[in-house]
Design a protein around this nucleic acid. Structure first.
Lengths: 248, 248
DNA sequence: CCGGGACAATGACCCATGTCAACAACTGGG
DNA sequence: CCCAGTTGTTGACATGGGTCATTGTCCCGG
């Protein structure tokens, strides 16, 4: 899953960010920006030391200062209920922006934790906003990204509300598949960086159910699974499964 | 539930919109704008003939031209699956903006239908965007509203994923309660403009379950229910119910 | 190469909630 | 004011998926 991976020791000089040379360029914020505007954006972006698996990018309740674009690796976001229970609210892949849900309140409503070694671009929000008011294309792109996030969550709500366990897992797999595809990775052959527990939590199922489903999908010839590694063998069948709600 | 209701015949002269005189002023887009900026906003807003119960504000697949602020009444938004099944994605009350989820694709991903007589302000999106780039406060407010929407949907995802039927209904009731309260209506005594079927659909439950729960809440003394009308008698108990997920 | 701890898979059992069916209550049109 | 259609309520029964318990597997450190 990891791609652009910084090697070993962290040099003290400012790491090169340069959106223009980033392989995620077309999916991330910069899309459609002119060369000069891009340079301005580059200047406000800070590159941070890569996060190790399990490290937090931010925690629920932290003051909101920046949004983060993922360069490589992956994150999960989750809230913690009063009872200490965790609820996973999303998994995030390279080029995606996290932290947007903190704008309203000025406080992060969820925590973000690395699922593997992960590097991010930090984009201070006050400066992004200021820049947005000068560069209409940037502003538009920001609204578009947020709108897209709303859309994706509506989709998720549909699975959670209406669909059977198998449809939910199928939908999850398809979503990952298309996200990888958009990032020029294989749509059929990928690693899931999160644990079964995280998947189950996200889908609102018991771990055991998820486990059983993976097994069943495998015996039915839809997938080949080996731990984190997934190979999709029958995309159409998955699609059919994901489509059917349990009223059928 | 309806409040600012236009009476009978529709005059041909442009109806008075004037955000400044709107009772929803503080909750809606205009918040924090200076007088002059408000006037500019007023100029791009169109007032449409009120929608009757069951009328569509827009339909899934329609081209995205405008976002809509609800003045009075209420709407539901929903998608229709290939199988013709309906999935309710939200209920919308006065001062709320609908249509934001269409920004990314330029096409409405869901339909919006009036649950009762409902009047809305139409805000053409191209002009709003243009205005936003000139008025930073407006832009900020727009981002804030979208961020808030993301937040609310995450919350919804949590109910749907993790919670028992009773917790879901309790959470729904509490959400309406606080939304009415924010709009200076009673937090304990209100009408639900949508049918049981819509509620059930939204919560991912069977109508029968919703019906039974209403009855049970009533016998347990938490509520008094009479058709659409709800009187909350024990807010704390509801809160406790909404909090507990079915892992407790 | 071995051992411990986390993670994953599988089986047996049970409960919450869905389904089906009958009925009751309300609503609007004539 | 009545009747038909729609919407809501209630009961009996079925089942998907949760829970608990056991066993298997991987992975890392020593």
């Amino acid at each position: 899953m990891s791609s652009v991976q910084e090697s070993g020791a962290i040099s003290l000089k400012r790491l090169q960010t340069a959106c223009e040379s980033c392989s995620l360029f077309q999916l991330c914020l910069p899309l459609e920006l002119a060369h000069d505007d891009l340079e301005e954006l580059d200047h406000i972006i800070k590159q941070r030391r890569p996060l190790q698996r399990g490290e937090y990018l931010f925690q629920m309740g932290n003051e909101f200062r920046a949004v983060y674009a993922i360069r490589s690796g992956s994150l999960k976001t989750f809230t913690t209920t009063d009872g200490g229970e965790e609820q996973v609210t999303g998994f995030h892949l390279p080029s995606e922006l996290v932290g947007l849900d903190a704008i309203t309140t000025g406080t992060h409503p969820c925590s973000a934790r690395a699922l593997e070694t992960t590097s991010v671009c930090e984009i201070p929000f006050d400066r992004l906003e200021e820049l947005g008011s000068r560069i209409p294309g940037l502003q538009r792109q920001l609204l578009r990204i947020m709108s897209h996030e709303i859309l994706m969550e509506q989709d998720t709500m549909i699975w959670l509300g209406k669909k059977s366990a198998e449809a939910r897992l199928a939908a999850l797999l398809l979503r990952f598949s298309s996200r990888f595809k958009a990032r020029k990775f294989s749509a059929c052959d990928f690693n899931l960086s999160m644990s079964r527990t995280d998947i189950a939590n996200y889908l609102g199922l018991a771990v055991e159910t998820v486990s059983r489903l993976f097994s069943r999908f495998q015996t039915e010839g839809l997938l080949e699974v080996d731990r984190k590694h997934v190979l999709i063998k029958d995309m159409d069948a998955l699609q059919r499964m994901a489509g059917a709600d349990h009223t059928n």
